[in-house]
Design a binder for these strands. Structure first.
Length: 787
RNA sequence: GGGCGGUUAGCUCAGUGGUAGAGCAUUGCAUUCACAUUGCAAGGGUCAUAGGUUCAAAUCCUAUACCGCCCACCA
């Protein structure tokens, strides 16, 4: 590469002869760079070129025989179609666009596949608020009508969002855009469920589920948060024993008392029955032994309420045969539900229908009146589970739901199970852990691998049933006579067990992450030809080979906050469904926070709107501000000031170009280029810089690459090189024409090379300049120039 | 309770074995000559603390302190 500078170059080789054709107006006005005049125009130019679509990319001229260049693919994490773009999206789009543009310039068959997420529960909540504002109640709107309303709502948002993505300069292939509720995605998601059911990886079970009584839906383990809280710990006399609890209102649902089998105080009572006075009844409770009981906590005796406490439920499961069934004394609205167990006596009706906290207060009073409260520990602090969205306490509830088996190996539970010929001997969890441990999937930064393993180690089965309308319907049908469940796409004519024709569909929908967990292979049209159901073959045939070409994809770039929700599930479901990893690298970016590292929120008033910033400073400035100094996995301190700094940088590029072009245009080169020793040194240093930046991008250190090119362009190229070469260009001080041309050559070479390297970071201004550079190849865009 | 990080200039953070770095901020000077959305220059850090390994430690090891985050079914 360096050798070419040693030999003389003719003017035709450096392309300055076309300078007079340059539209001089652009450069001669001394105005600052105005992104508004270029960005929209440039994006249209890109879209018109068709190069966002890998099928249209020119095949490398240097290797014309290369008919199948190496693919590079990123599946865009689909933004939720329920609002507008925020800085997190802007960061995600910038990082991915940098990788995509870089690889495209390197000649890869580059696909960035955009999408939008229906975002089940999240969108349901957003829409609920709209419904509320209109004075309606979502629980009173028929499901189908509500679904249609939300559909229209998301479609509108989707279009707005797509345009916002364009404004950031994202070079994604819009012709392949997918929505998580596209028909083929829905059908394929259901296919996966059906297949997993056959393979014994999905089962229905009645167990305690995290339930939010405000939102009226169950959750997975990930959708609850824990908060430390101070609550009185009540010591309640239970016949001969005393039990400690923070939830006296659950005493009505008690079915036993558990003690530690080694606890000498109670060893004689194990297996015996006691009678406890719970105001409205005298409960007969068996004393059982369970090693999970901590003898040092409270009195060492635990009341067991299997229907309303997860621990208690597990103890009940182990002792099913010895003690009675759970009693559900709190209903789905979080209110006391006693009459059905204890009759409608006055004392019972006193509590009936009261909210949990109201009931607790009253019950404590009544227990105290009877002298049944031994003591109250007011200093007790404990963790309680809350709904991640509304922060109301989770009320565990006994429910029949669909679960994904995470830690147990699959087993054929249907003749059509495929596990025998597909080599699935491991659990979903173990498969995923294996590919990360073996380095098939690499995390950036690496420390997230440890976090991933830790989470995987403790993972439990995944509840995927949601009691909302906005989502993908579960393909499961229940016989209304015998209760038998059938997992098939279409409604069965009759129950396969009892023959009854009274069949009804499960009214629940999937956890949205169950479908997004399949996003990489579904968007690429996995299993298009070999569908379990022919009806699902409705994907546009022109992208029929995408799965073969682009899967496994190269990079999954997303926020670390959805590592478990999304990344882990994509790995598991991808491996299960396709037998291959869904991506090779996981790049996890941090949260964008304000200048003081505070979370941005509407209530704090510190939210920065990316579109507003683009209006003010341009997309390039915003992109650069998001990248420089932003290390993977670490939250970013962000401010408008920072964007201003890179707006200034954009102008610097603009002005420097103006200077160079002004000194080149309308002047013909006189002959050969004779570079001085210092010219050669500069070009050599520039080659070194290129190598360094390439290496930094390859190793995902975009923050370093961006800073490097910024620093070089401004403080080396502008401040030193241009300044030092000024005298060689001026007529008064110029030594000779040859020396002038050498200076011109060096400046233009470095300018062009810099534009290429800046392009992935600041695509608009660099493309605009490139388009107006003297002597450029007609119609050739910087976007596809060789890196 | 389990786990993962961080502690470097006023601020935000790079730097992971070889004489302390960037951006912003601060201070001084310059300015019809591409650019004031500018240039030149300056000040500023015993790299949390204590031990250890090494010819050599901000960097590797151990401990301590403080800060942050994630996970979690002690009633």
């Amino acid at each position: 590469m360096l050798r070419q500078f040693d030999k003389p170059l003719h003017q035709t080789q450096i392309g300055i002869e076309g300078a007079k054709n340059n539209k001089s107006a652009l450069w001669c006005e001394g105005k600052p760079y105005n992104p508004k005049e270029t960005e929209e125009k440039i994006y249209r130019l890109w879209e018109k070129s068709g190069y966002f679509n890998p099928d249209n990319l020119p095949v490398s001229k240097s290797k014309p025989h290369t008919l199948h260049p190496k693919p590079f693919c990123i599946i865009m994490p689909p933004p939720n179609a329920n609002g507008s773009l925020h800085l997190g999206h802007a960061l995600m789009l910038t990082l991915e666009d940098i990788m995509i543009r870089y690889k495209r310039m390197q000649g890869f068959k580059t696909l960035w596949l955009p999408g939008a997420d229906h975002a089940g529960f999240e969108t349901q909540i957003v829409y609920d608020k709209i419904v509320e504002k209109e004075g309606r109640n979502r629980f009173e709107i028929p499901a189908e009508k509500l679904f249609k309303e939300i559909w229209n709502f998301t479609q509108k948002n989707k279009v707005a969002m797509e345009n916002q993505i364009r404004r950031l300069g994202a070079s994604c292939d819009w012709s392949r855009e997918k929505f998580t509720l596209d028909k083929d995605i829905v059908l394929k998601t259901q296919d996966t469920f059906i297949q997993m059911y056959k393979d014994g990886l999905i089962y229905r079970d009645n167990r305690l589920v995290h339930w939010c009584s405000k939102h009226q839906t169950g959750f997975s383990d990930l959708e609850i948060i824990h908060e430390e809280k101070s609550d009185p710990l009540y010591y309640i006399k239970y016949g001969p024993l005393t039990v400690a609890t923070v939830r006296p209102e659950t005493i009505f649902g008690d079915v036993a008392v558990a003690v530690n089998p080694k606890d000498k105080r109670y060893i004689n009572l194990i297996g015996k029955e006691i009678e406890a006075d719970v105001i409205i009844a005298k409960l007969k409770l068996k004393i059982i032994a369970d090693s999970s009981v901590d003898p040092d906590f409270g009195t060492g005796a635990v009341k067991i309420t299997p229907a309303h406490d997860i621990n208690d439920f597990e103890i009940w499961q182990k002792n099913k045969d010895k003690i009675e069934k759970p009693k559900e004394v709190i209903n789905k609205y979080g209110k006391m539900d006693l009459v059905r167990y204890f009759g409608d006596g006055e004392d019972v009706k006193k509590y009936e229908g009261l909210k949990v906290l109201e009931a607790r207060k009253l019950i404590v009073e009544d227990l105290e009146k009877r002298g049944l409260i031994e003591k109250i520990d007011a200093t007790y602090r404990h963790n309680i589970a809350l709904c991640y969205k509304c922060k109301n306490p989770i009320e565990p509830r006994l429910m029949s739901q669909w679960f994904v088996r995470m830690t147990a190996a699959p087993h054929a539970q249907d003749q059509k199970s495929k596990i025998k010929n597909q080599n699935f001997s491991m659990s979903l969890r173990d498969m995923a852990v294996k590919v990360v441990k073996s380095g098939k999937i690499k995390f950036i930064p690496k420390r997230f691998e440890k976090i991933f393993f830790h989470w995987m180690k403790n993972i439990r089965d995944w509840n995927i049933s949601r009691q909302i309308v906005w989502g993908i319907k579960i393909p499961a049908w229940q016989c209304q006579d015998c209760g038998y469940w059938m997992v098939v796409r279409n409604k069965p004519a009759k129950c396969v067990k009892c023959g009854s024709k009274k069949i009804e569909r499960d009214s629940d929908v999937f956890d949205t992450w169950f479908s997004s967990g399949q996003w990489p292979f579904l968007t690429l049209g996995f299993n298009k030809t070999k569908s379990e159901n022919p009806k699902s073959e409705i994907r546009n045939s022109k992208h029929g080979n995408d799965f073969k070409t682009f899967y496994p994809t190269d990079v999954m770039e997303t926020g670390w906050d959805i590592l478990f929700f999304w990344v882990a599930r994509m790995i598991m479901l991808g491996l299960y469904r396709t037998g291959k990893i869904p991506f090779k690298y996981v790049y996890l970016h941090g949260l964008v926070r304000d200048a003081y590292k505070q979370k941005m929120s509407k209530s704090k008033g510190n939210v920065i709107n990316p579109i507003e910033m683009i209006e003010k400073y341009g997309a390039d400035a915003l992109r650069m501000a998001l990248i420089v100094g932003n290390t993977p996995g670490t939250d970013l301190a962000f401010s408008e000031e920072k964007i201003k700094g890179y707006r200034n940088f954009a102008n610097k590029i603009w002005q420097a170009t103006r200077f160079i072009v002004m000194n080149i245009k309308d002047i013909k080169l006189v002959g050969q280029i004779k570079l001085t020793a210092s010219d050669k040194k500069l070009l050599k240093e520039f080659e070194m810089l290129k190598k360094k930046i390439t290496k930094q991008i390859e190793s995902f250190n975009f923050y370093l690459a961006a800073e490097e090119i910024y620093h070089y362009f401004w403080h080396v190229f502008c401040d030193k090189i241009i300044e030092e070469n000024k005298s060689r260009l001026k007529e008064e001080t110029m030594k000779n024409m040859e020396d002038r041309d050498a200076a011109r050559y060096v400046l233009l070479e470095i300018l062009k090379g810099s534009l290429k390297m800046i392009h992935p970071f600041m695509p608009f201004i660099t493309e605009e300049i490139w388009q107006n550079l003297p002597g450029k190849n007609k119609n050739k865009m910087l976007m596809i120039e060789k890196w």
